[in-house]
């Protein structure tokens, strides 16, 4: 995990942490058991094996417990995702256009830029479309990503909670300069943002 800067960090990183802990637990358990058995029951040390055919209670246990755990992980993931779909009514809208190989942002007052400026602690809604092929709008620091298609709109939203500058990357292969389709999002204080927005 690294520091994030949006309202989604808590649920996303929380789900990730929980899943990692459970995963590491089972990985270590299996690995240690494997290694212990291979050493303890090595043919030189344990020349005669014992035929343990099955144990239904064991099978039930190691089916039910993992099922419960994955269902918890599922739920944690679902509520984190549902938040990403619940776009607040009062969001400031920015139109995003993707094309090979750059991003363009257009504000409600008509201002057009190639870097995204937003005010801190205010919900921002992105209305996204592509001029040519598939792209995807990705801000790693905010944990958001959405595919962007031609001839239709896709939406995403976020609320930045830290002033600073963060990378915007394209995350859907789009040809020759896919890896150069970077932009930046600058999170400003509300005052600085309003000041910037006026400069048409």
């Amino acid at each position: 995990m690294f520091d994030g800067a949006s309202n989604f960090i808590e649920k996303v990183d929380g789900a990730f942490l929980f899943t990692i802990i459970v995963s590491v637990f089972f990985l270590v358990l299996i690995t240690v058991l494997m290694l212990v058995f291979v050493f303890k029951y090595n043919r030189k040390r344990h020349p005669k094996a014992v035929n343990v055919h099955s144990n239904v209670w064991l099978e039930v246990t190691w089916t039910v417990i993992p099922t419960i755990l994955v269902l918890i992980m599922f739920w944690y993931g679902w509520i984190g995702y549902a938040e990403m779909r619940a776009i607040p009514e009062n969001s400031m809208q920015v139109e995003v256009t993707a094309q090979m190989w750059k991003w363009t942002f257009k504000y409600e007052n008509g201002l057009q830029t190639d870097t995204l400026y937003v005010p801190v602690n205010k919900p921002v809604k992105l209305k996204m479309t592509s001029r040519d092929v598939n792209h995807a709008f990705y801000i790693p620091a905010f944990r958001i990503k959405k595919d962007v298609y031609p001839a239709r709109d896709r939406f995403a939203w976020f609320q930045a909670d830290k002033i600073g500058s963060y990378d915007i990357a394209c995350a859907e292969y789009c040809g020759l300069n896919h890896s150069y389709m970077y932009s930046k999002i600058h999170v400003l204080s509300e005052q600085d943002f309003n000041g910037w927005l006026q400069k048409k």
Partner: peptide, 8 residues
């Protein structure tokens, strides 16, 4: 498979 993780 966890939705919020996969988005990232």
């Amino acid at each position: 498979g966890v939705l919020s993780i996969d988005i990232h």
